[in-house]
């Protein structure tokens, strides 16, 4: 459903992506792991054309375009079939919670206002924010803001939602509520790509795990194939600490 082939991206002389391939099937929950600076965020941003890749192709449904030369019409089409959940929430500060969710429905997808509000309220109720419709982002906790961010993404019924470390800007006690919401979404069959440092979340929720290092997808497979069976030294080294923690817990 979503296929990326040979994605390259450099910032000046800093080659960040060096030929990434990624396949996401409908209903997949793909977790992307990897050390800091390996290009995970950049990859997600390239998919949504928030960053222009230097090379590579993107297939999404019937759309099949070059990541470098895509026309603005195709870019818009891809953006309207995908949604992005940002590490630092990135809610619209000049809009209320409800307006944050309806914006993409009314303006981008031309859904009538009443209907948009109905959809938005449904999604906000689903993430447990039925009492915050009229609040502004700066009146919410980080966890609440991120749940709005998720509602905003889900409301547009995207083919795939891209999450960039959705919990890493949160206080530890708020991480749980957001992970819970994402877990529920995963169960409902929404296709998702999640960059995360929450190892146990990736292991328990993902249907597929991709390990990125130095700008390439070094290994990919089921959680078991990556967490337990993988023989790639870089992956083993990266996961060692996490696996050790589990040992202690047992």
């Amino acid at each position: 459903m979503l296929t990326l082939t040979n994605v390259h991206k450099a910032f000046g002389s800093n080659k960040v992506l060096k030929g990434v391939n990624l396949t996401v099937e409908k209903g997949d929950v793909v977790a992307i792991l990897g050390p800091s600076g390996s290009g995970k965020t950049t990859l997600l941003r390239c998919i949504n054309f928030l960053e222009r890749a230097d090379k590579g192709r993107l297939k999404l449904g019937e759309i099949d375009i070059s990541l470098k030369h895509a026309h603005s019409k195709d870019v818009l089409a891809v953006r309207r079939k995908t949604a992005f959940v940002f590490q630092n929430y990135s809610l619209f500060r000049n809009k209320t919670v409800l307006q944050n969710v309806t914006e993409g429905l009314i303006i981008a997808r031309k859904i009538p206002k009443d209907e948009a509000i109905k959809i938005a309220k449904e999604q906000l109720d689903r993430v447990g924010l039925s009492d915050k419709y009229d609040a502004y982002p700066n009146q919410l906790s980080g966890g609440q803001q991120q749940r709005v961010g998720i509602a905003r993404a889900v409301a547009v019924k995207p083919d795939v939602i891209l999450f960039d470390e959705p919990t890493s800007a949160l206080d530890p006690e708020l991480v749980g509520e957001v992970l819970c919401v994402i877990k529920a979404l995963a169960k409902s069959g929404i296709t998702m790509v999640i960059v995360t440092h929450e190892m146990s979340f990736a292991r328990d929720v993902a249907s597929k795990v991709v390990f990125m290092d130095e700008g390439v997808a070094l290994a990919s497979g089921t959680p078991k194939e990556i967490f337990v069976d993988c023989q790639e030294p870089r992956v083993k080294q990266f996961l060692a600490r996490f696996n050790n923690e589990i040992d202690y817990n047992i």
Binding site: F49, L76, R79, G104
Partner: peptide
Amino acid sequence: KDQMDAALSIGLTPLQAFIRIILPQ
């Protein structure tokens, strides 16, 4: 900067994003 990113990501055109999100702020 992230305000523009967010606006584009939900499918607004750059002009819509500028007028509706960036300019008021």
